[in-house]
Structures are given as structure tokens and as C-alpha cells.
């Protein structure tokens, strides 16, 4: 199982946390596609607390955290 945690505006129209069958999501791109999150809406992608590119490979038990760009002032 993968745990996917969404933050900030990525929660709009989505859940805060998803639990996904890892077998169907070999990498981060598959997760983004499943949740309809455009790559331009991903600023920080963490796999088990470490910064990774969005196409990083995922494995059963991973925890993914995704943050959008927050750039207003």
C-alpha cells in the first residue's frame, strides 16, 4: 500500500490522504495521473521524507507527500 499525502491547494476537490495499492502505481507520475494533478502543480515531491523527482519509482509501504507551489506575496 502507498500512502499519499496532499497539502495546501492540492486538497481542493481531493482528499487529504489516499491509500493506494502499490502494484498499480510504479512511480510518482502514475500517482499524479491518478489524482489528476498536473506536473506544474507540484513543487515538492517527497518519498519517505526525501526530495525526489515526480517520476521516481515507488514501492509498497512508501509514504509520498506532495506540495504545490506557494508563491504569492
Amino acid at each position: 500500500m502507498l500512502e499519499v499525502r496532499l497539502f495546501a491547494t492540492l486538497r481542493q476537490g481531493r482528499e487529504k490522504v489516499y491509500h493506494l495499492d502499490a502494484a498499480g502505481f510504479p512511480d510518482g507520475t502514475a500517482v499524479l495521473d491518478h489524482l489528476h494533478i498536473p506536473k506544474e502543480e507540484v513543487a515538492i515531491f517527497l518519498r519517505n521524507g526525501f526530495h525526489r523527482p515526480t517520476d521516481t519509482a515507488l514501492a509498497d509501504g512508501d509514504i509520498v507527500a506532495i506540495f504545490p507551489p506557494t508563491g504569492g506575496g
Binding site: F7, A8, T9, P68, P69, T70, G71, G72, G73
Partner: peptide, 10 residues
């Protein structure tokens, strides 16, 4: 650095 958007800040 600071940034804001919607209800969120960093």
C-alpha cells in the same frame, strides 16, 4: 523566504 497562496503559507 515567504510565500502565500489561498489559505496556505510557507
Amino acid at each position: 523566504h515567504g510565500g502565500i497562496r489561498d489559505w496556505c503559507a510557507q
